[in-house]
Design a protein around this nucleic acid. Structure first.
Lengths: 155, 155
DNA sequence: TATTGTTATACTCTATAACTATA
DNA sequence: TATAGTTATAGAGTATAACAATA
C-alpha cells in the first residue's frame, strides 16, 4: 500500500490501528464482565464516586438511560453492584458497588495496565511519556470543542 | 473524575477521545458518500491499486463479502465505481473506479487533510511530527502481532 | 466438489415510545 | 404536569446460511 498519495492516511491509519489494538485487548480483558467496556465504566463510577442515580450515571457516561437499565440489571445479577432506594426521592435508584464489585474492579484495572503495556511495548519510558503527553493535549482540545458526553467509551 | 486510581485510563481515555474526534470529523466529511468511511476505503482501493475482485477487496479491507456486495452496489449506483467481468474467471468481478470516482476521491482526500488539521490543531509542527512518528511505531508493532486484516476502518 | 457473488434470514445493538410510580 | 425507571417495539448494522453460476 505504499502509495504516497495516501494523504491524511498516515495519522488516521496509525490512530485507528493503535486504538483498535488497545480496544481489542481491553475488550478481551472484559469479556466476562457483564456489559463489557461499558459495564466497566459503570462499575468504576460506582466504586470511585459517591452513589448517583441511574440517570445521572447515564448522562455522565453518555449512555442512553434505557441501556443503563439493562446494564445495571446485568451487573446487579452478577453481584457487582446494587440498586438502593434514594431516601429523598422514591422514584430514583442509587447505584452502589458491592465488595465483590470493588474486588472485580481491582482485577480489571490490572488488566487495563497490562493492555497499556501491550500497546506501548515498542516504546521506551521517555517515548511513552511523550506520547501520553501529546495525546492528552490533543484529547483535551478535542473534548473542549464540541459536546462530548462520553468520557471513556471505546467505540 | 480526578481520581489517581484511574490506572490505564490516561492512555485509554486520551486515545479514545482523539480517535473519536478524528472519526467524527472524517465521518461527517463522508456523510454523502455511499457506505461512509468504508465506502471511502473501497473507492480508494479501486482508484489507487490494480483492479481486484470483490473477494480480494473484502479480505484486504476486513469487510465481510456479503457487505461488500451492498457497498459496491451503492458505490456503483452513485457512478463512482464499476463492476467489470474478469476475463480469466467468469465468476469474479473486478472493481474499477470511474472518472467521477477519481474526482470524488480527490475531494474526500482534501477533507481528510482538513480533519487531520482539526485534530492536530493544538500542536505545532514539531510536536505533530513527533506524535505521528510515535503513533506509527506503535501501530506497526500492533499490526505485526495478531491478525489485523482491517487496514483503516474507523469504528 | 470448491469458489465467487448474490440473496434471504437472523441476530445484536441501539434508539423511540409507551407505561408505572412517584414528585 | 413533569421526572426516574422500566418495558416493549422498531430500526440500523452485521453475521449466517442458502443459492446460482462457474471453476
Amino acid at each position: 500500500m505504499a502509495n504516497s498519495a495516501g494523504v491524511g492516511h498516515d495519522l488516521g491509519w496509525a490512530l485507528g490501528a493503535v486504538f483498535r489494538c488497545y480496544a481489542r485487548t481491553v475488550t478481551e480483558a472484559m469479556a466476562t464482565l457483564p456489559g463489557g467496556p461499558r459495564g466497566y465504566q459503570v462499575l468504576s463510577a460506582a466504586v470511585h464516586a459517591a452513589p448517583r442515580t441511574q440517570l445521572a450515571l447515564a448522562q455522565q457516561l453518555g449512555i442512553d438511560r434505557t441501556v443503563m437499565t439493562y446494564l445495571i440489571d446485568d451487573l446487579a445479577r452478577a453481584g457487582l453492584i446494587e440498586r438502593q432506594s434514594d431516601p429523598t426521592d422514591r422514584r430514583a435508584r442509587r447505584v452502589v458497588a458491592t465488595e465483590a464489585g470493588r474486588s472485580e474492579l481491582d482485577q480489571l484495572d490490572d488488566a487495563l495496565r497490562t493492555a497499556e503495556e501491550v500497546v506501548l511495548a515498542p516504546l521506551d519510558e521517555t517515548d511513552r511519556a511523550t506520547l501520553r503527553g501529546l495525546l492528552c493535549r490533543v484529547a483535551r482540545h478535542a473534548m473542549a470543542g464540541p459536546d462530548e458526553a462520553a468520557t471513556g467509551a471505546l467505540g
